[in-house]
């Protein structure tokens, strides 16, 4: 395999993994606060369509990305009101949001189906992009890719190094205790839900504005569900989410390259297409197989409603 090919595979892997990282990190923070929002597919679709529309009208992809985040946040706010204020069931509300978001995005997006956007140029980081093979793949990417790395470090720092992160995790572990020592549990959960929504919206915006530049109904194509699964299989740890997302992207891209290489292999294409799913699951299950760390890392009150006693 020559260097160019490796560069091409790496490059495509990073791009394919980026939306998953953004969305999954948002969901991770969301779930660490003890709230399970299954609506990511719907929030992504909303983010994608709104970001596309705003980018189309303003010509500015960054305004589009912001609008996508806002759309994701508003969708998650509905979820927040239902589950945190009205104490509705989180699983049912999340599923409803997923269906609602996909449907509403199709409705909003009708006029934009025939519109094509300019693709957003890559940002080349001087010097390090000249490193052979990996430089071109990692440091000549769209700014959103670098943003996803910044997001990773921020989430890591926030959860494990900041006081606010500690409080957030406490809320996810034992809301009653957190409440008893004076933390506003419901407010913190609202903020976590909004962050999750914003990141899902941003992930959707990445798809419609930066990745395919187009809007079509159903374009999220299940990535919201994959992100949800990634968080669980990565046992709520950011680094593993990142590994899982790139692994998923990497295996998907590699199987495409194998098919496209004209190599004479005797695998059913259906098998190759399913490879990313089970490869990711197996690897994440294997690296997270320690029962103690799973218990340590999974938010104990995930999905359970909490009503502060007056």
């Amino acid at each position: 395999m020559d260097g160019n090919l490796i560069t091409a595979i790496l490059f495509a892997t990073v791009v394919a993994g980026t939306p998953l990282i953004i969305v999954a990190l948002g969901l991770l923070v969301n779930e660490r606060a003890g709230v399970l929002n299954l609506g990511s597919e719907g929030m992504m679709a909303m983010g994608a369509v709104v970001a596309f529309a705003v980018t189309h009208h303003t010509g500015n992809p960054w305004l589009g990305a912001l609008a996508g985040m806002a759309a994701g946040m508003s969708a998650s706010l509905i979820f927040g009101v239902l589950t945190l204020t009205l104490q509705a069931n989180q699983v049912a509300s999340g599923l409803a949001l997923a269906i609602f978001g996909v449907g509403l995005s199709a409705f909003i997006g009708k006029p934009y189906e025939s519109v094509a956007l300019q693709s957003v140029p890559a940002v080349r980081i001087p010097f390090i992009a000249d490193i052979p093979i990996i430089g071109e793949a990692l440091y000549n990417q769209q700014a959103m890719v670098y943003l996803s790395w910044a997001l990773f470090w921020t989430v890591l720092w926030f959860l494990y190094r900041s006081r606010a992160g500690l409080v957030l995790r406490a809320v996810g572990e034992s809301p009653a205790s957190a409440h008893a020592i004076g933390h506003p549990v419901v407010l913190i959960r609202y903020l976590a839900v909004l962050f999750g929504g914003a990141m899902a919206g941003l992930g959707g915006a990445f798809l419609s504005v930066f990745y395919t530049p187009m809007w079509v109904e159903g374009m999220v194509a299940g990535r919201g569900w994959i992100a949800l699964a990634l968080v669980v299989f990565a046992t709520w740890r950011p680094l593993r989410v990142m590994i899982g997302a790139y692994l998923f992207g990497g295996v998907m891209i590699t199987q495409l390259f194998i098919q496209g290489s004209g190599l004479q292999i005797d695998f059913p294409a259906q098998f190759l297409s399913s490879l990313p799913y089970w490869a990711t699951i197996i690897v994440l299950v294997v690296i997270s197989r320690n029962a103690n760390t799973i218990r340590l890392n999974s938010p104990a009150s995930l999905g359970k409603p909490y009503r502060p006693e007056a």
């Binding site: 091409a8 798809l207 990745y211 187009m214 998907m252 390259f257 259906q270």
Partner: peptide
């Protein structure tokens, strides 16, 4: 001429169709 085929196992998945096209292009198509 040689023709290389990538199966995306979907009638409709813009993301994957794009990746498949990109893959074929970077392999010389």
């Amino acid at each position: 001429v040689e023709v290389r085929v990538i199966w995306v196992n979907s009638w409709y998945d813009p993301g994957r169709e794009r990746e498949a096209a990109m893959t074929l292009i970077s392999q010389g198509a």
